[in-house]
């Protein structure tokens, strides 16, 4: 299929079918909820469908789609001005489900939630760069092309994001240790 002035939506379903998983995943990692990710992925394919004539076939189609998805999600995050959920607030939010999940699934879900709470502490562009690096193995050059940034800007964003994530985890560990120490201290009457 080559891009032209227009493309039939039924024909475009092949593009959707082949690429919806990675596009959805990017939206999910960017927005943190499956529902929002579904909407964002639908919008992404709609924008891609409308602008298919602008697609440069020398570039991989998935990279182009991920670029649209990333920009859409960055805009969404800015629009909603999502409140940064602290890990403290988050751990209180995890309540047992009405239907108990197998242990490994619960663990996975918790890790996922912790991950999204962590990613929420990043700026939208930094978050997009991190997702592209760790989930899609994009190089600095690929990220720079996808997010319209210079390579040094990508390097600095990834550096800043990694430092931020580590600092939050370290802080969380410190708080956790302090809490345990407090609980173990003999209580004065």
């Amino acid at each position: 299929m080559t891009p032209d002035q227009g493309i039939d939506s039924t024909l475009f379903t092949t593009v959707v079918e082949e690429n919806h998983r990675p596009v959805f995943n990017l939206c999910y990692r960017m927005l943190g909820s499956a529902e929002d990710a579904e909407d964002a992925a639908q919008e992404t394919f709609w924008k891609a469908y409308r602008n298919y004539h602008r697609y440069d076939p020398t570039r991989p189609l998935l990279t182009w789609l991920l670029a649209i998805a990333a920009h859409h999600c960055i805009d969404e995050i800015r629009k909603r001005r999502m409140k940064t959920i602290s890990l403290d607030a988050f751990t209180e939010e995890i309540l047992p489900d009405s239907q108990p999940l197998p242990e490994h699934q619960t663990e996975l879900r918790m890790e996922n939630e912790i991950l999204h709470a962590l990613l929420d502490t990043l700026q939208p562009e930094d978050r997009a760069a991190v997702v592209m690096r760790y989930w899609y193995g994009f190089s600095d050059e690929e990220i720079s092309q996808t997010l319209n940034l210079t390579v040094p800007a990508v390097k600095s964003r990834l550096f800043r994001a990694r430092k931020q994530l580590a600092t939050v985890i370290k802080q969380q560990e410190t708080n956790h240790s302090a809490e345990i120490r407090r609980q173990n201290e003999p209580q004065s009457i």
């Binding site: 379903t13 959707v16 919806h20 998983r21 990675p22 990692r29 990710a37 579904e38 639908q42 394919f45």
Partner: peptide, 12 residues
């Protein structure tokens, strides 16, 4: 890599 619920293309 997480996936949407089945039937994404039809929903699109």
């Amino acid at each position: 890599i997480s996936s949407p619920e089945a039937g994404f293309t039809n929903r699109w």
